[in-house]
Design a protein around this nucleic acid. Structure first.
Length: 560
RNA sequence: GCCCCCGUAGCUCAGUGGAUAGAGCGUCGGACUUCUAAUCCGUUGGUCGCAGGUUCGAAUCCUGCCGGGGGCGCCA
């Protein structure tokens, strides 16, 4: 019996009480979703609900009296051992071992589907993340969005959404020009320009641009006039840099469905189209030689220039066009993940969304994630793109591997700035919780192998009433929480909840392993239903660990 | 000045109104002749930044302060 099933039973009981006039409430007063949770104290039972506390006042009775009414009826339901009223009016529910234990079989049979739901079924979501400019390798901050964004996409897919992962590829504008000038200068053996980029990768890309051009039978671009040379370095350099970024992300387990070129918005007329649309809607005006969007009408602090007085589109014009394009491509919801340094854009972006007639925070959602600070030897690491002292995803992968890197970045709330201790991560010690979780999975796999060798087969028997040890009850309860974690993680856009849950699950599993060790028969012992049933439980745990790690894009090793 | 995020154990961090606030690491001490000790058990550890408010109940919601981080361009 799962918490969701209990919630249904509770709802049925309450509906019955209302129908019989035992409680002065109408059916609409009942909460849509009755919260059934694990009580903190295990001795309080398997599950608890505060529903009587919530409804007591509305029903004109004390929460305890209401709880007592519910308890009497709920206790009569099959599979429920007892229902207690505690404290101010909590209902503490204890299940019969068999009712709790059947979950093990249900999980194994559901396999990869266990934990999924259809809360977002039919919803088309465009999730834009990373979107780092191709002027250098992706640094540690971008790595955080790669890990968190990809996991969020997986979570929303687990809830039935159709998710498109999108990377907005800025190949247009002043930063790209600086990048091209930096490449050219380096190729000519000159100092990087004042506002340019430094670092070894500039040298590498610059020499590859020259080599590629020569190999293609073109003249050495270093010898061309500045403008022509710079254009070659821009086009080829951006392409090379972007290929590297894609390859790195792929190694990191993150692949995008769409790489959207900013330049294409300007070339295709999408920008003019968006501006024309806004003009039609009456939100555009001309002033001081520039074209403005009246964002203040929709809550922004000031109006925004969309076409500068020199006739060039302002950066936000690209955002306007891009958002409209996403909507016209059929997405119900555009979600954009940005770093904390971009939070100031939220106001204008939401105003822009409203100006198009859409609903802010429904059709457009902006997630802000805080910074990643690096610590090495107890000292903060200063990063500088110009000096080339940037810690990149590649550095991270090299130091700790993909699994530890992704897990380390995804296990903290994006609302918190995190300190990544490079020494700790690089030490490859078991301080890293990813090993704790992965080891639990490897252990389940190992037990399954041993069981198979000794003739313990799931299909030969399953008796859930045998799962009556406290550590088994704890493990079953934790397994039952998984679907709720998935649903909440997706709804709140907080993949870190999955990681935290897995750490808890691994903990109760390791404890069970330590206290039971009875999946495989010892010595002359005959294989019994006890062994088989515990194998079901072992394999159910394995299923959930694998499903959870899958949501984080972290591997679930069979052996460690 | 205005806006956003954070402030919870020595450290890194969980905890979207519920019961005695948790985990890992760290300290100290235990457990491998049987399925992986990358594990487990015990021990140590807290004015949840401060002050008010909301209510049956606040780490959680509201207001004000304090401290840390980030941001407030006809840059991209």
């Amino acid at each position: 019996m799962t918490p969701a099933e209990l919630a249904q039973s509770l709802h049925a009981v309450l509906t019955g009480l209302v129908a019989h006039g035992a409680v002065a409430l109408s059916a609409e007063d009942l909460p849509q979703e009755i919260v059934v949770e694990r009580p903190r104290q295990r001795e309080h039972g398997d599950w608890a609900t505060n529903v009587a506390l919530q409804l007591g006042k509305k029903a004109g009775m004390t929460p305890r009296d209401l709880a007592a009414l519910v308890a009497a009826r709920l206790a009569a339901e099959p599979g429920i051992a007892k229902v207690d009223v505690a404290g101010p009016g909590f209902l503490n529910i204890t299940l019969e071992a068999a009712a709790a234990g059947r979950l093990a079989q249900a999980i194994v049979e559901a396999g990869p589907a266990y934990g999924t739901n259809d809360a977002l079924a039919g919803e088309r979501i465009n999730l834009e993340f990373v979107s780092a400019n191709p002027t250098g390798p992706i640094h540690i901050g971008g790595a955080r969005w790669a890990a968190v964004g990809d996991s969020l996409a997986r979570l929303m897919q687990a809830c039935g959404a159709e998710v498109t992962r999108e990377y907005y590829f800025n190949d247009h504008g002043a930063q790209i020009d600086r990048f091209a000038r930096s490449l050219l200068a380096r190729a000519r053996g000159q100092e990087a320009p004042e506002d340019g980029y430094g670092g070894a990768y500039i040298e590498e890309i610059a020499s590859r641009v020259v080599a590629d051009a020569v190999a293609a039978g073109e003249p050495d671009p270093t010898h061309l006039a500045d403008d022509a040379a710079q254009e070659i370095f821009r086009a080829r350099g951006v392409a090379l840099m972007f290929d590297e970024i894609k390859a790195t992300l792929h190694t990191f387990g993150v692949d995008f469905d769409v790489y959207y070129h900013e330049a294409s918005l300007h070339e295709s007329g999408a920008v003019e189209h968006a501006i024309a649309r806004l003009r039609e809607l009456g939100h555009v005006y001309e002033s001081e030689g520039a074209t403005w969007l009246r964002t203040t009408e929709f809550g922004d602090d000031k109006d925004r220039v969309i076409v500068k007085s020199d006739g060039d589109a302002a950066y936000i014009a690209g955002d306007l066009a891009y958002y409209l394009d996403k909507r016209e491509r059929g997405f119900d919801r555009a979600i954009i993940m940005l770093g904390a340094d971009h939070h100031g854009y939220i106001g204008r972006m939401m105003a822009m969304c409203a100006a198009f007639g859409d609903t802010p925070w429904v059709n457009l959602e902006i997630l802000i994630g805080q910074m990643v600070n690096l610590v090495k030897g107890g000292e903060p690491v200063r990063m500088s793109k110009r000096a080339g002292t940037v810690v990149t995803i590649d550095d991270l992968i090299e130091a700790v591997g993909v699994d530890a890197g992704r897990y380390g970045l995804a296990r903290s709330s994006a609302d918190s700035a995190i300190d990544l201790d490079l020494d700790l991560l690089a030490s490859r010690s078991n301080d890293n919780p990813v090993y704790y979780v992965q080891y639990a999975h490897a252990r389940t796999a190992n037990i399954a192998r041993n069981a198979a060798d000794l003739g313990v087969r799931r299909e030969d028997g399953f008796d859930p009433s045998l799962l009556d040890h406290p550590s088994e009850s704890a493990l079953l309860g934790k397994l039952a929480e998984f679907p709720r974690v998935v649903a909440q993680g997706a709804e709140l856009r907080e993949p870190h909840r999955v990681a935290r849950y897995l750490e808890e699950l691994a903990g109760v599993y390791h404890k069970w392993y330590d206290q039971q060790r009875r999946v495989v028969p010892f010595g002359e012992e005959e294989v019994s239903d006890g062994h088989r049933t515990r194998l079901w439980l072992n394999d159910a745990t394995r299923t959930v660990l694998a499903n959870g790690l899958g949501l984080l894009g972290v591997s679930a090793p069979e052996r460690m």
